Simulated assay, not measured.
Amino acid sequence: MGWAIGAAARHAATALLGENVVRPPTESGHAALDEDEYLVLALDRERQLTSLPAHALEMLISCGAYGEILLRALAAQGWKADRVRFVNPAPAGQALGDDSADRIFGDRWPHAWAPVCVVRLRHVHADSEDLVELRETARARHTNRGPYRPESIDPAVLTELSTPRSGLSLFQAAPGRDPKVTVRHVVADAERAEVADLVSRHGGRDFSHLLAWQETHSFIRRSEADAEARGDGFTLGQLFGPLAPPRQYGMRIALAPATMRLLRHVGYHRVLARQLAAMVRSSPAAVALCFADEAPSIESIVCGGAAMADYWLAATRAGLVLHPVSVILQHDDVRDELEKRLGLPGRAFFVSRLGCALTAFPPSHRLATSRTLRLV
């Protein structure tokens, strides 16, 4: 996310939003309290996944989730998003030309960042959402890959979570454009079995696809210290729960791309898929979020990510945890089969286990704010 404080960046932001006048920033480098601020949500092309076509959509969904949480935190402090302009980011691998973002937004714009949307903020009264509560919920919102309690989730909680969502902050900034994201909970045994069957049959593709697994494996860290030093990624404990040292050593060898290249010939990837399928089958529920359109626009994708973050925060407040099962969405044939089996009302873009955790899982490490929010 770029915070436009320089003259060039503010001029570019206002031009993209169709505004004509840019008031100069104060001596501190940014607008006064009663003036507008501008944020530019961007995709870091140096860090995006590219081995599968579906990753392009996933990266934009992640941008929307990040933007939603940030804008809600700002709204809780009185800065409300009231206008937004979406742009299509340059594809991965495409050379940046004379109209590249670092030329448009000034010299401080990171060269690898591709703008996704520009948001105007105006200072109004603070939002009703409590900032401390939002911070605690956001910190508690992380993937739990462990077993869940078998008891059914309270139907009243699921009904509340089933409300069509649009990403509160981003869509409030885009009046008149509100393609809701549909929420579908999968609670019947037969339907959960359908999802588990697809995971069992196709969940090994991520492991057997050499480029995809090599890319995924690059984010597995050797230790907690390694993850902390890098500022991101997952340890084996964050993926599989507490492991004894011999088990950690064995898993590290088994998951290495060179080993996986050999083990896939004896079906190890199918073993891992069946283990994940068993977790899906034993969970009390799953959830699917769907776009209305089969070919969603950049706006719908980013705001879909915002809606996903909104759902996950609400589920966390309700005492629930999630474990996304992305592999059945990363291949069109599997996703199509999922949508048909469950009778989903649109294109599924997020599927996850849902339930109450039996054990706590540590959160993965996140990049420092200085690397994700830049003054430009």
Rank of each mutant, 00 (worst) to 15 (best):
M1R: 05
A4F: 05
A4D: 08
A8C: 13
L17N: 04
R23P: 07
D34C: 12
Y38L: 05
L39K: 01
A56H: 15
L71D: 03
R72S: 04
R72M: 01
R72F: 02
A75N: 01
V87T: 05
A90M: 14
L96W: 10
D102S: 13
D107Q: 09
A114V: 07
A114T: 04
C117H: 10
H125N: 06
S128P: 05
E129I: 01
E129T: 01
L134F: 02
L134M: 03
A138W: 06
N144W: 03
N144K: 09
R149M: 09
P150Q: 02
E151H: 07
P155I: 00
E160Y: 10
L161I: 00
V181A: 03
H185W: 07
A188Q: 08
A190T: 08
A190P: 07
E191C: 10
E194T: 13
L198I: 10
L198D: 07
R201S: 12
H202E: 14
G204S: 13
G204C: 11
D206S: 15
H209K: 15
S218D: 13
S218R: 11
R222V: 04
E224R: 14
A225I: 06
A225D: 05
A229Q: 02
A229T: 04
L239W: 12
L243S: 02
P245S: 08
Q248C: 09
G250S: 11
R252F: 08
A256N: 11
P257E: 14
T259H: 05
L262P: 13
R264T: 15
H269N: 12
L276I: 12
V280C: 09
P284K: 00
A285W: 09
D293L: 10
C303K: 05
C303S: 13
G305N: 11
A315H: 01
R317C: 06
L329D: 11
D333I: 15
D333L: 14
K340V: 14
L342F: 05
G346E: 07
L354Q: 03
A357H: 06
A360Q: 08
P363G: 03
H365L: 12
T369R: 12
R374I: 08
V376L: 11
